[in-house]
């Protein structure tokens, strides 16, 4: 039972943060692609801006990993 809840929690952590960073990257990505079509040398800057919101999902992933392998292992 408890393990199941942990699994659900971990899934939510990754899922929701994934949605959130996807939503945040939507406009940034479109803009970055737009700028790169005109001037390919903007790739570096475009990439930086594009992956900025990626941190949200990474935090979600870390939380999920902690939940499963640390909290889950002690249950």
């Amino acid at each position: 039972m408890e393990l199941g809840l942990i699994a659900i929690g971990a899934g939510l952590a990754v899922g929701i943060t994934g949605l959130a960073s996807g939503w945040a990257e939507k406009d940034v990505g479109a803009a970055a692609v737009g700028a790169m079509t005109e001037d390919p040398s903007l790739f570096g800057k475009g990439m930086i801006l594009m992956v900025l919101p990626e941190t949200i999902v990474i935090f979600g992933l870390v939380v999920a990993i902690l939940l499963i392998f640390v909290t889950g292992a002690s249950v």
């Binding site: 990474i58 992933l61 870390v62 990993i65």
Partner: peptide, 16 residues
């Protein structure tokens, strides 16, 4: 603190 924690991706990506 957020910047520091951001480096947890090093482990997290390996784990995934």
């Amino acid at each position: 603190v957020g910047n520091i924690l951001s480096y947890t991706r090093l482990a997290a990506i390996g784990m995934s």
